[in-house]
Simulated assay, not measured.
Amino acid sequence: MISLARFVRRIAAVPMALAIAIAGSAFAQGYPNHPIRIVVAYPPGQSTDIATRYFASKLSAALNEGVVVENRPGAFGNMGTAYAARATPDGYTLIMGASGTHALNPALYDNTGFDAEKDFEPIIATAFIPMVISVNPSLNIKSLPELIQLARSRPDKIDVALPSVTAQLVLEMIKRQNVPLFAIKYKGSGEAMTALLGNQVPVLIDTVAASQSQFGKIKPLAVTSAKPMTALPEIKSVAEQGLDGFNVVAWNALMAPRGTPVEIRDRLAAEMRKILALPETTKALHDLGFEPAPAMDHEQLVAWLRSERRTDADIIRSAHMKAD
């Protein structure tokens, strides 16, 4: 394969912008010719990590080249994301972006070490991750309107376990409807679920992924996606239960460092669309408590991500939310 230096010298007479585009295209034609790594900015074993490993396996088969997951946790996802932002933009280092790292953290931290919009180019949204509002059965309620009515009748009594910033985002959105609920923050899903099961707190907001294994012991009232989840149609959405337009979900999106040739991004997006269309992918995501993300072209994806960042930042500022 011709080196980039020799290639660029051969087209030195061509205007610089065109030369760069042609050089990028030359690289893309031979892509990939060595293993690709996908950075996950969270520890192994979390749902995002599990889903990414599934996609890496499928993408490896599609590209006939190794695709490995590299976990770089730390600083609530900021460490691994900053690392990916500084990677060479050649298509061999990608990141599974998340709503936490690419929408919430930029509004919570003065310095994340990266710019969520300027340092990355989105490839494809892979999954939406709905939250679920659940209660201890001792509360003896069966719907979100009943919880709202109970909270309004006991305006200083109903505590809610929150294991994440996204869970707090859901709570703040509900509180905007004159619903007096009170946050009790936990370090993670395990601690929060233990508190709910032990009836130390009556209400929990967490991902479906983290909650669904306990649905026989707790009562799920509502999912936070705009519509019920395909795999859990019996659980109505918040929007269906009186809070029109309510839609708060976490998400994952495969991204590349800014400057990655468009031909490489398009190739990856095309292969990922095929993977997402597989029935086995839908099942794998549903088993995790995820929903496959809807199809979006590149412009739609960029606009949606910008909207997510703007909406989340507005809620964070108005609620005076702080990083823990």
Rank of each mutant, 00 (worst) to 15 (best):
M1V: 09
L4A: 13
L4F: 11
F7W: 06
P15G: 08
M16Q: 15
A19C: 04
I22N: 03
H34E: 15
I36F: 01
I38A: 10
A41R: 00
T48P: 01
R53A: 07
Y54C: 02
F55P: 03
A56N: 04
A56G: 07
L59A: 01
S60R: 11
A62E: 14
N64H: 15
E65R: 14
E65L: 00
P73C: 05
P73T: 10
P73S: 02
N78K: 02
G80W: 03
T81M: 08
A87Q: 13
A87D: 07
P89A: 03
P89C: 02
G91L: 00
G100E: 08
G100V: 03
H102K: 05
A103H: 01
A103L: 06
L104F: 10
L104P: 01
L104S: 13
P106I: 04
A107Y: 09
L108P: 11
L108E: 12
D110C: 02
G113C: 06
F114M: 00
A116N: 09
A116E: 08
A116D: 02
A116C: 03
E117F: 04
E117V: 15
D119N: 11
E121N: 08
I123Q: 09
I124P: 00
I124V: 12
I124E: 00
A125K: 10
F128Q: 13
F128E: 14
V135M: 07
N136Q: 04
S138H: 05
I141N: 06
S143A: 07
S143Q: 05
E146A: 13
E146D: 01
I148M: 14
K157E: 15
I158H: 06
D159N: 10
P163C: 09
T166H: 12
L169R: 05
V170P: 10
L171G: 04
I174P: 04
K175W: 04
R176K: 15
R176N: 15
R176S: 13
L181M: 15
A192G: 14
L197P: 12
Q200A: 06
V201W: 05
V203R: 13
V203S: 10
D206L: 02
V208H: 03
V208G: 03
V208T: 06
A210Q: 15
S211Q: 06
Q212C: 07
Q212M: 14
F215K: 04
G216K: 12
A231Y: 11
A231E: 15
P233M: 10
E234V: 07
K236L: 08
S237N: 01
A239R: 05
A239Q: 00
Q241M: 01
G242N: 11
G242F: 02
L243T: 00
D244T: 12
F246S: 05
N252C: 09
N252R: 00
N252G: 11
A253R: 08
M255D: 03
A256V: 11
P257F: 01
P257C: 06
T260F: 05
P261D: 09
P261C: 00
L268Y: 02
A269H: 12
M272P: 00
R273N: 09
A277H: 14
K283I: 12
K283H: 08
H286Q: 13
D287R: 12
L288A: 06
L288S: 01
G289Q: 08
P292L: 09
A293T: 01
A293K: 02
A293L: 08
P294M: 01
A295Y: 14
D297H: 10
H298C: 00
H298G: 11
L301H: 08
E308V: 04
R317G: 01
S318H: 08
H320T: 06
D324K: 12
